[in-house]
Amino acid sequence: MNAIEVRKISKSYGKLKAVNEVSLEVQEGELFGLIGPDGAGKTTLFRLLATLIAPDSGSASLAGYDIVKEYHAIRSCVGYMPGRFSLYPDLTVEENLNFFAALFNVTVEESYDLVAPIYKQIEPFRERRAGKLSGGMKQKLALSCALIHRPKVLFLDEPTTGVDAVSRKEFWDMLQRLKEKGITILVSTPYMDEASRCDRIALCNEGRILGIDTPTGIVNGFRSPLYGIKAKNMFALLEEARKARGVEDCYPFGESHHLVADSEFNLDNFKKDFDGFEGFFIEPVEPTIEDMFIKLMKQ
């Protein structure tokens, strides 16, 4: 049985189609990533699945329960961590945890083995008010509270946004361990580099899903040759490269530009044409998820 099944679900806010006929399936115990820029509809999808809003059309089920008809059953088997910190800032770390345990009718002791690896890191600050914690600690507390009732499915909406690089890595390590305990995790992130830590990912944009596959599968789907080009005058290089023969697309990518070649592309001719650029340099590069995302977005 799939832990999450979404069938052609849609939700609009006025004229804006926040989620547009999205379908996806997540297997039990899978770490599934929703990758996409701001405004892709990731948060709306989470809110639909967490039963905070009702869909306009389509349906979805979690752990076999329908999100509309059986929302009551869903609430006790789902953990939801919103993108914005939304615990009580005026309660302490410990009080927040006890409070949410009580709302789910469990005790902290019952779930301690599950929560402990994360909670132990913030336990020294258990008397500190949640509002006074640092960003990374807030995330750990929010994750602890979302796990307190041993959910079958965990929703994490952009958990690493605004968190430093070290904490981000730690956070993904924690998710890996939770996954090993059999919890299905649906996580969203705007950072493409985090996508590789997921079992499977869905690339989303403007309320639609552009593609679903494993991170390697997504990258392998990028069949065109890809080059990185550099020169002293990067802007002029970009302009010229876009006009050159055999170039499907060229876009800035970190320190260099990525150039997507089509069948008419000839590396030697291209080198000759661009020799006039001061410090010109070209090399073949491996495509990344971001390259695939850009390609899919333009189709």
Binding site: P82, R84, F85, S86, L103
Partner: peptide, 13 residues
């Protein structure tokens, strides 16, 4: 306003 009502709403309360 501080969003905690969302956390309450996803519980069986």
């Amino acid at each position: 306003e501080n969003g905690s009502i969302e956390q309450i709403n996803v519980t069986p309360l």
